[in-house]
Amino acid sequence: MFPDDEIVSALPRVVMGETLAVIIDYDAGNLRSVQRACAEIGLEAEITADPERVKQADRVIFPGVGAAGSAMRSLCRRGMDVALKTVIDSGRPVLGICLGLQISLDRSEENNQRTLGFIPGDVRRFRFDNPELKIPHMGWNEVRVLKPHPLLEGIEAGDEFYFVHGYFPQPQDQADVYAVTEYESEFASAIARGNYFATQFHPEKSGRVGLRLLAKFKDWDGRC
């Protein structure tokens, strides 16, 4: 019916004032659960492995589970590292989730991997003498907000989010840490700098409080 599909698909978002949201696909986990949770709060997000599409996006979700080494190889092979850097430098909102957060730091102890370095710091493995503390840190745990951020609005004392991870982020600069969670000792569970915000927990699997965070991201202008 229409001569050019690309123009047709581009039209509505211009006309309606809608924006393009993408979820970065780099073979690192169950992206559809992120997509479904976004749909639930009215954010239609496209899953894409195309770095050009990411560069065009108005907001970007950078999820991920799995290991730092293979994730980095997969990102770089596609040129997705460059695309992501472009978006972050442009000031558009980016949300990192779990491994997405971890590989945004400089280095991970997992696979002793050099990572993207958007935020100074490294990622370390949980080590406990107490055998009752299981690894991975798996389940629901409290997220204690240290300072206000538009995406953390509405979180109350006692609100819990779903975590699954064996490694934890250690940002170099305390100013980047917006929320902490206790697992024997406290670690950074939400970090942010400018238009980049990332959680160690999974908002897409954290019930109502997680959906609310995603809804805040949907409306976020990238400023804090």
Binding site: R32, S33, R36, A37, A39, E40, Y162, E204, K205, S206, G207, R208, G210, L211
Partner: peptide, 8 residues
């Protein structure tokens, strides 16, 4: 279920 239940 995955479309409407947002827990693991």
């Amino acid at each position: 279920v995955a479309e409407q239940v947002f827990i693991p």
